[in-house]
Amino acid sequence: MTITFILDALITVIGITTPILLAATGELIVEKSGVINLGVEGMMLVGAIAGFAVTFETGNPWLGILIAMVSGAVAASIFGVMVLSLGANQVATGLALTIFGIGLSSLIGSNYVGIAIDPLDSPFPDTLALDTFWRIVFGHSPFVYFAVFLVLATGFFLNKTRAGLVLRAVGENDFSAHSIGYPVIRIRYLAIAFGGAAAGIAGADFSLVISPLWAEQMTAGRGWIALALVVFAGWRAGRLLAGSYFFGVLMALELYAKASGFAILPSQFWAAMPYLIAVIVLALLSSRDGKGGKAPACLGKPFIPNG
């Protein structure tokens, strides 16, 4: 194994980690507000097709990303109306959102199957990324830098700002927050929309960068990994960043197992690896008292104000 090989592998890892990190950061905010949205996979697909279609029709990938973000937020807001205003069960509604997203994206995407576009390039000039080493720093798509910025900003927001404190308070004890005078429902709507926007961008990362074309269910279950990651990270932004890259390494193993003759075990085994490791690590973490991180106390419970 050469240095170049390792650097190449690193670039792959960073690339495939990014959409998961984006979607998980969005879900972290949603869950911190006390809502669990299992529709991440569906929102990602909606973002993926919206981003692809707009980019293909207009030739402007930035407009594509914007529309992907907006459509993710709109899909999430449908979920928001159901669970916040109508008091629907969050788990069932989130699953429905995923199924809805799969169906809707397939319907819109049927006109775009088999079309390829140019992938979105690094925002930095080529002269900065001449060799493999500098490509690690400057050679990624804008999504990569944005994802890292977003998770760090989210960590700062949650722990260092007053608005973040209020968001956590709403997720921790909605009745108390309400009686002190915070608008619980409005805060949760905003959090859900943010989560949808982040998932939409994550979807656009798939269809504009990772494989710049449209294929049905192209997110291939990454939305579920994003959900697991939030738990894995114990609802902490710092651990979410580290955990995402850890999962990225595991997923890259599958790609390399497929591509190279490195097939001691069938590639299906490597594909299952991230999930297996997730289960084992979660079990280990939760058996260690307190270190596993505590879920927001109101997670998944509907809030019905009594006056």
Binding site: V166, R168, A169, E172, N173, I180, P296
Partner: peptide
């Protein structure tokens, strides 16, 4: 001062007090 306290279990005293104030 409420009969059923409007406190947040997982947070510390200062954070809880800050939540009850309006300014930053």
């Amino acid at each position: 001062v409420f009969q059923h306290f409007s406190l947040f279990e997982a947070m510390d005293v200062v954070e809880n007090i800050a939540l009850g104030l309006d300014g930053s």
